[in-house]
Amino acid sequence: MNLTLGPILYFWPKQDVFNFYAEMADLPLDTVYLGETVCSKRRELKLDHWLELAKDLRACGKRVVLSTLALLEAESELKMLRRICNNGELLVEANDMAAVQLLSEQGLPFVTGPSINIYNLRVLKQLYNSGMRRWVMPVELGAETLQQLLQQADEARLAELETEVFAYGCLPLAYAARCFTARYRNVPKDNCEFCCIEYPDGIPVRSQEGAELFTLNGIQTLSGEHYNLEHELPRMQQIGVDLVRLSPQREGMAEVVKRFDQRLRGEAPDSIALVNSQQCNGYWYGKPGMDWLESSS
């Protein structure tokens, strides 16, 4: 199994993004996903900047995939999607069926992100026949479903298919028309002043009793707790997972990567806290996502 770095889900200033990837370039990551997946108004980096980053990361031996928007509503968003799908060089991660349509029409291989609903073998086969060569399991699915699916995929001889599991970070749980960050700031979405840039790890939403429930990130709602499957890597290996996705956070990401790398190599990880937040792993065990269960592997 190898580690991947998911796309940055938050809105960071351009220089911070460049600095972040400069740090990531030397870490044991197989694949780095680049691009904006949440809001088309976030334009600190233009496509050319992402391509420049891709070039640097590839020079450091990383595989690079361009990620695309999850919720496409406007023609301008489809235009950008077409540009990304026509980049002519890099693999693309489809986060909406529009991308699947454009990529499959061109006969290009592609990756599907966690917001493409793949819950059974028929869908895996359907998308495999459309050109999907790697898929990220939807976050609400767990080990048991994955095990059954991958056994079936094996029998169906989907030989070139790679499986990736979202294993660390706040979970992307929902997308909306409404911008919750703008709502929090009491400004209209169309005049949002790009305020997401002030919240590099989103805005925490707590219950009236102080429980960490969700994280607001523009039109996206993430989990309040950090999903962490670091103890589940042996089971993933056994099931046949190929890639383990770590989702970027503003501080301490290098430590997260190192810790997962140590776990993968069977070493005891350094005793460093990954993040100052509660952790959860319920989905992996078929329980409410926010639950934390002691590892059985």
Binding site: L71, P138, E140, L171, Y175, A177, R178, Y283, P288, G289
Partner: peptide, 21 residues
Amino acid sequence: CIMVEGRCYLSSYLTDESPNT
């Protein structure tokens, strides 16, 4: 529904059931 339907997992995050599953 305020979230785009079919891609909202908030319910299964708090309980073990969602519209999709």
